[in-house]
Design a protein around this nucleic acid. Structure first.
Lengths: 346, 346
DNA sequence: TTGTATGCGTTATCAT
DNA sequence: ATGATAACGCATACAA
């Protein structure tokens, strides 16, 4: 039942030529007699022949496949990066093999290396593994491009979102609205972009002595935001910067349920500008990160490497503030919601 | 610079054995002397050797890779199916190659066939291509499992969501709440699951003579729902069943902006129960579809085929009603919002 | 322009 | 238990 797949040899025999000629025809080599070529093409079509990708891969030393490692396929950020990279790669005749470490950093190295064995190159997206491990992986998987992580001096092309500038812009947006007590809901400790944001916010705090900028560990998922209500209300802040839109979204949902008005009582901002942000209630102020572009650029960098082109410098995409309805002027009452007493958690 | 990858021959030479022995050791064949085996393993480790996946694929006739075709990687439904399938496949040592037809049905056949050339098997998820084309693809890509599409009598394993039962349950939930004028915001015409819903709703309409069930073309994206406001308000219905949560979500966002109260003025229900549904405002009533399970089951079916196990019957997953806050009792006022006059669009 | 012969890296068959 | 050798299906250097 398993339908036999014709080989180049069968086409050659049926067409009365050598396998080399068939190969030349299939690869569009112009050095072959037009009549012969068309006959070969006919036979090939009749047999429904197409060259084996695997055999071709072995012979040529390249598979036209690239691997993409992400920390979590459930995260819209990485989904979009995959989507963008896949579209660009497809246009170039490449396919993408996915590797999802499901937020287990200790699996990343093995996943990456194994994936590289099947592919011509790798895209490492927001790898969470420690620096020394990453350096080793980079050394043994070349060519590889990094997304949202520094190349540890390995010279691997890296492109990243300038989270530091982004979170600063966002904080200043809030400060400009009169907020003086801000809370940052931090993402996973292993996230490099989270670290960048924390550092940047420290700088902002130093620059604006009159604003109090606190931080609380939270996470990167919707539910982390949903569960952060008590921490948020207990913090006595008037504005919160969530690690990402997911967290902001979860928080918004819980806030709406609890009857806390946004932005009148509390301003909420996200990060990433995922598709849902615009349709949240209220529509979510966030920093727009061109996620699909990130994937597309990652592919293009990789393609350059595969084509032996000279390396181009790192690319830093700067997020853009998208001010919507979830942020507004700070409430007059200093100290935020905690002075309400009845809304204080517990 | 491109770090040389050691071959089995080098390991064999350095260990002073034949390639066959190295191969046996690497594959854990027990027929090899323990001392020799450990020496080979040492040399292999020292050289950082691991068998070439490509060469192995050619020799064995299998690549331990499966392809997954989806209509749109931007759609949470397919993202989750990919995620579920990938996790299951990874556990079994397989990898997934993605193919995204970006909602261009005419590309599906080629994408599927090309992907199959690189893989051992295929998962076709909600293919939009016409029946005859699908039949041809199925015939030439075996083994393949279908998700949310009938196997055209080809005997390919199929698993699907019972959208007919699901939409019926949802409609009856609404009818049970007293709604007598329902609107279905239809998805893409090429979607088989949309067709199933339409048929099922026709049956429901026949069964409940006192309810008026209308339909409007809409789409499958958030923005399609967002733009459906006029159609919805103009329809004079008290409850709308969206093609999926995305559409419901977009509609909800616009409804909130327009000041239409949900569910007091209008009930809105989605389909799929994506992660965001629970956190919508108001939280979205929807039919829960176990999307990751769908992907996992698809992989398991495929794995059975790959292992030569007997085919198991088609699996139909029945969605489960998740009644949240976006649906409620029908407004007293018959005819819905249009009687308001001032809210009538245009 | 076309064919012959060889290599790609591995596994499997068949000796020994 | 181990080794020589022939596939696997294709591309290419070289010869004709």
């Amino acid at each position: 039942m398993s339908s036999r797949v014709p080989t180049i040899a069968e086409v050659a025999r049926e067409a009365g030529v050598s396998r080399a000629t068939v190969s030349r025809v299939m690869n569009g080599r112009s050095t072959v007699d037009p009549d012969l070529a068309s006959r070969v093409r006919e036979v090939a079509a009749g047999l429904n022949y197409s060259p084996s990708r695997v055999a071709r891969g072995l012979s040529l030393g390249r598979t036209q496949t690239v691997g993409l490692l992400v920390p979590d396929l459930g995260n819209p950020m990485f989904q979009q990066v995959l989507r963008g990279a896949n579209q660009a790669a497809t246009r170039a005749g490449y396919r993408i093999l996915v590797a999802d470490s499901i937020e287990e950093p200790h699996r990343e190295a093995e996943l990456a290396i194994e994936a590289r064995r099947r592919c011509d190159a790798l895209i490492l997206c927001s790898p969470r593994m420690p620096e020394d491990e990453l350096a080793q992986v980079l050394a043994s998987t070349h060519p590889v491009v990094l997304v949202n992580r520094e190349p540890q001096g390995t010279g691997a092309p890296a492109l990243s979102v300038d989270y530091a500038a982004g979170i600063r812009d966002l904080a200043e947006h809030l400060i400009g609205l009169g907020h003086e007590r801000l809370l940052y809901l931090a993402g996973p400790a292993s996230s490099a972009s989270n670290a960048a944001r924390v550092r940047s916010l420290d700088a902002v705090a130093a620059q604006y002595p009159h604003v109090c900028l606190t931080r609380a560990d939270c996470g990167s998922m919707i539910d982390d935001g949903y569960r952060a209500l008590d921490v948020v209300l207990g913090s006595g802040t008037t504005a919160v910067l969530a690690f990402n839109d997911l967290v902001a979204f979860g928080l918004l949902g819980k806030l709406n349920e609890a009857g806390v008005r946004v932005p009148e009582d509390l301003s909420v901002a996200g990060f990433d500008d995922i598709a849902f942000a615009k349709y949240a209630t209220p529509s979510l102020t966030t920093m727009s990160v061109p996620q699909m572009d990130l994937g597309r650029h990652a592919w293009e960098r990789l393609h350059q490497l595969l084509e032996g082109e000279p390396e181009s410098p790192s690319l830093h995409l700067r997020p853009r503030l998208v001010a919507r309805s979830s942020t507004g002027p700070a409430a007059r009452r200093p100290g935020g919601l905690t002075t309400d007493g009845d809304r204080t958690p517990r």
